[in-house]
Write a protein that binds this DNA or RNA. Sequence first.
RNA 1: CGGGAUGUAGCGUAGCCCGGUUAUCGCGCCUGGUUUGGGACCAGGAGGUCGCAAGUUCGAAUCUUGCCAUCCCGACCA
Length: 492
Amino acid sequence: MSKELTSRAEDYSQWYNDLVIKGGLADYSAVRGCMVIKPYGFALWENMRDQLDRMFKETGHVNAYFPLFVPKSLFEAEEKNAEGFAKECAVVTHYRLKGDPEKKGKLMVDPEAKLEEELVIRPTSEAIIWNTYKDWIQSYRDLPLLINQWANVVRWEMRTRLFLRTAEFLWQEGHTAHATKEEAIEETVKMLNVYAEFVETYMALPVIKGVKTANERFAGAEDTYCIEALMQDGKALQAGTSHFLGQNFAKAFEVQFLNKENKQEYVWATSWGVSTRLIGALIMAHSDDQGLIIPPRIAPQQVVIVPIYKGDESKPAIDAKANGIMTALKAKGIRVKYDNSDTSRPGWKFAQYELQGVPVRIAMGLRDMENNVVEVARRDTKEKSSVSMDGLADHISNLLEEIQDTIYQRALAFRNENIRPANSWNEFIQLLDEKAGFVSAHWDGTPETEEKIKELTKATIRCIPLDNKQEEGVCVLSGKPSTQRVLFARAY
RNA sequence: CGGGAUGUAGCGUAGCCCGGUUAUCGCGCCUGGUUUGGGACCAGGAGGUCGCAAGUUCGAAUCUUGCCAUCCCGACCA
């Protein structure tokens, strides 16, 4: 493993790749477009997943699991959705291999084993789920149906990037059914808020809640709500989406219920998801040229203790002290590791744990023991301080909260500094090119203008913020009247 | 799927133009020793179908053709 990381200024993309690979989060795999999530990266995902799962359960949802394969006839039932995903579907056509008579020891697809009906590998599960819900929903008493699943999905992308865009990725998808339109919309917004709270509170990443324009909307949805985050290079990243699906899937799959008046009605639906892409967002928002910076609340390791000793005679004493500290920290629920391996030296360990973004490092040697102190280094600011061993666990516990807050405030300040209003076309393109970030501008509300702006600048409308203030203005491109500003940015 | 580039040990590479002993160097790895307050040092050692296949040749990492894979730039996308 090379010691050198590419700096952000030198090559932002390469910096990102270096962090993922050298930080031990993931690896390239033998399969084109697919990655291996390594134990450290998966531990991070597990922490995110577990917290989200708690939040879903608190809001009344339960988990279930639906098949990976979707028969083509089901997949195509909701036309807009099918059309939206058609270009990136992997399809299973055969169910057997056999020995290749031409090439000894090689296998070939058995042409005799062609499937009657092709199976689409889910790019998302609406089709298989709504086909199932049809049988589960008969009466208003069966509603609402609030189900989530943790799963993998496959979208055959032309170009991939670790965590941000891979052919297979992990996510959760919530699929709910409701008796009324109002209730479904309420659910859509509720889950958007859950996402925003999770991302801001646990990932320390400020987001803008908004609604997508028709162009950017999920295929098959009536409305797509989103949370948008800003990366350090000034590009926006969609961190989560929540869709109000109207009755589109209910009608496509004939999901009706008898209401209290004994009349058949189509149910109202939502779906919502976040994926391992969030890990990419986390990396690009917080990390620096020394490596990853992971917020304490989701960090696989929150504290690492590194002993410093001369010769073997001082080691047992340091071990004993370190174990005492570990016990105290664990009692406070802190995820701590004592790295007393003698296969690498302290300096190497320091660099390694900085690369991996462990929020707090405690170093202790004989000198510290004599003074009843330890050296505490925080990853986010690189500050080092000498801290008394008395009450150390409380100090660390508070420090972790402070780090969480510092990381969030830093990201928030950066985000806020990088939302700029543009009142003319010249100003608009100048801001996009020179400053990046979000540009807040008037738009005439037509897909044509949005498309034109995308062609000219590569910037898209990231969202119409939910709390948007209404103001008279004219579209930056067309000059037509507009009632509000929307957020533009170049995006991942 | 178009345009460009690259494939040599786990990683990064030299050699290729101009074919010729046992394929270079660094990191990492293994053994022993000395070390340990910011990526240690010394000595010894292991590790290779030179992406795959065919061709040219007395002889191919090197030349030719085909294939495969990866990366970058486009179109597509969470």
